[in-house]
Design a protein around this nucleic acid. Structure first.
Length: 239
DNA sequence: TGCCAGGCCGGGT
DNA sequence: ACCCGGCATGGC
């Protein structure tokens, strides 16, 4: 459903899916805790957040493993590594030339601004820090927010492609909604609780991967089947 | 076997 | 302010 031009519609996305805690509880009950982020240290989370841009996590795991066995999951040592060597190590994660630069941009930011100390970085005021991380070339809103939530335990809700697809499917947002608008939908209707944000986003990704796929959606088995709109422009087609 | 994945940037309308 | 092409590997 596209946002109506300048006219106002009586029933629309803003009226739907505001009972987010029920969605959360239903998903958690069916799927259990997701134990996110899949990484052992905050720094590993940051690296993974950059490497997983538009990429299967399975591929990222291989790249991270390459870095880990060489003891390179450290800002100083990783930045010391010649870029060409870094590129080869992260090759399995795809876009390896681009991601080499993006990783190094973030490393330089971390080393120059905070002596490579993530704790020091995360001690900065949240609003300022988010803007600064976003200014690093190669780090957009999802990557920045993933770093803030999953590496820094900051109360920031992470939005990704699955989040948007599911919310559009549930008529909670318009198709044209941008990142911040989608994010607001959660932060406006949920307590700002770090474990909640952590688990909720992880559950969304799980549901997106398994039931809300672009090609082969399977709404019948989806844990949120009960909440699907029973009428609207998406039935029986799928966005 | 094609299609697609936990985006983002830069250049063009 | 959007829209689009480019970036790349490996799993299903």
């Amino acid at each position: 459903m596209k946002r109506p031009g300048s006219s106002t519609s009586s029933v629309g996305p803003s009226e739907r899916m505001t009972n987010l805690l029920q969605y959360y509880q239903a998903a958690l009950k069916k799927l259990g805790p997701q134990h996110w982020w899949p990484g052992e240290t905050p720094f590993e989370v940051c690296v993974g957040a950059i490497l997983t841009q538009n990429t299967h996590w399975k591929n990222v795991e291989k790249a991270i493993a390459n870095l880990k066995v060489r003891n390179l999951l450290d800002p100083h040592r990783l930045y010391q590594l010649p870029p060409a060597e870094l590129a080869q190590l992260i090759r399995p994660a795809g876009y390896f030339n681009i991601k080499t630069n993006r990783l190094r941009n973030f490393l330089k930011f971390l080393l120059d601004g905070y002596d490579g100390d993530l704790e020091k970085m995360f001690s900065e005021r949240l609003e300022n820090l988010r803007e600064k991380i976003l200014s690093v070339k190669g780090i957009g809103p999802e990557t920045a927010d993933s770093i803030l939530l999953y590496a820094g335990s900051k109360p920031v809700f992470v939005v990704d492609a699955y989040t948007k697809r599911i919310l559009v499917r549930h008529q909670a947002i318009w198709e044209e909604a941008g990142y911040e608008e989608i994010q607001s939908h959660f932060t406006d209707h949920l307590p700002h609780d770090v474990p909640l944000f952590n688990e909720f986003h992880a559950l969304i990704v799980n549901i997106g991967k398994n039931w809300c796929k672009t090609r082969n959606p399977d709404c019948e088995q989806c844990p949120w089947k009960e909440y699907l709109p029973t009428s609207g422009p998406y039935l029986p087609s799928f966005p």
